[in-house]
């Protein structure tokens, strides 16, 4: 089976060496060469590669953000000069992690692993991904998310968390409200909550995660029912446990 590969690296020499190494394998087809994360997400949507060879440090979207957006569709092998991301890479189920500079043999070893993974899991690189993994991702990186990336077809939206008003659960999706119209992301509210700074984002209700900066006041509707009134006048329900969490933080 021919392996369809997309190369993602913002440095031209790094893309060049990957092309050169891959050329010696007749069962590999390079379907895209991307210089940044946006191009990578677009290439995955349009070219449907089997494998992304993905740099970590890139403009706009880094390798982990790209993986977060495309993980269900493609196997990923990271290539980077930084060894400190290795643990995180395996926790988000990257197939392999190549430290620059790497040899031709090391790359082919990674390709063998990818083939093995694809054949045993059938179509299922996605089978290994669960919301629990996402929560672990936040832990592994140590610091909370500074921005949320959302894929919309081949487009990618990057929303700095400062701009988020609140996030609403909608079945398997979350709707991120940040000024303009809400954007949907395929993730559970619980796993997103775990990735955000708990002192800034409070689960005020089973279905709502609120940016504390946006809270204007709390309104008692009845004895046990309260509403959070946002600075722009919007109102969100607050559950009893949500109220307890707010009290703890305010």
């Amino acid at each position: 089976m021919t392996l369809r590969v997309a190369i993602v690296d913002d440095e031209a020499p790094a893309r060049m060496v990957l092309r050169e190494y891959l050329a010696s394998d007749p069962d590999v087809e390079v379907v895209a060469e991307c210089a940044n994360g946006f191009e990578a997400v677009k290439a995955v949507a349009e070219q449907r590669p089997d494998l992304l060879l993905l740099d970590v440090q890139m403009p706009k979207l880094d390798g982990f953000e790209v993986l977060d957006l495309v993980r269900r569709d493609v196997a990923v092998v990271f290539t980077t000069a930084y060894d400190e991301y290795a643990l995180k890479a395996f926790e988000v189920h990257a197939v392999d992690y190549l430290l620059k500079p790497f040899s031709r043999d090391r790359l082919h070893q990674a390709l063998a692993r990818v083939r093995e993974r694809l054949s045993t899991a059938g179509q299922g690189v996605q089978a290994t991904v669960t919301p629990v993994d996402l929560r672990r991702t936040a832990d592994a990186s140590g610091s909370p998310l500074t921005r949320i990336v959302i894929r919309d077809g081949a487009d990618v939206h990057v929303i700095p968390v400062d701009r988020v008003d609140f996030i609403e659960a909608q079945d398997d999706y979350v709707a991120v409200h940040a000024g303009e119209r809400p954007r949907l992301k395929e993730q559970t509210l619980g796993s997103l909550e775990a990735q955000l700074d708990p002192r800034r984002f409070v689960r005020i209700h089973r279905s709502y995660l609120l940016n504390l900066d946006r809270l204007a006041r709390l309104e008692a509707v009845s004895k046990d029912t309260r509403m959070a009134v946002l600075r722009d006048g919007r109102r969100l329900p607050v559950s009893r446990t949500g109220f307890a969490r707010l009290q703890e933080l305010l």
Partner: peptide, 8 residues
């Protein structure tokens, strides 16, 4: 990164 560029 430099070594990788040289390798390339």
């Amino acid at each position: 990164n430099c070594l990788h560029s040289i390798s390339a």
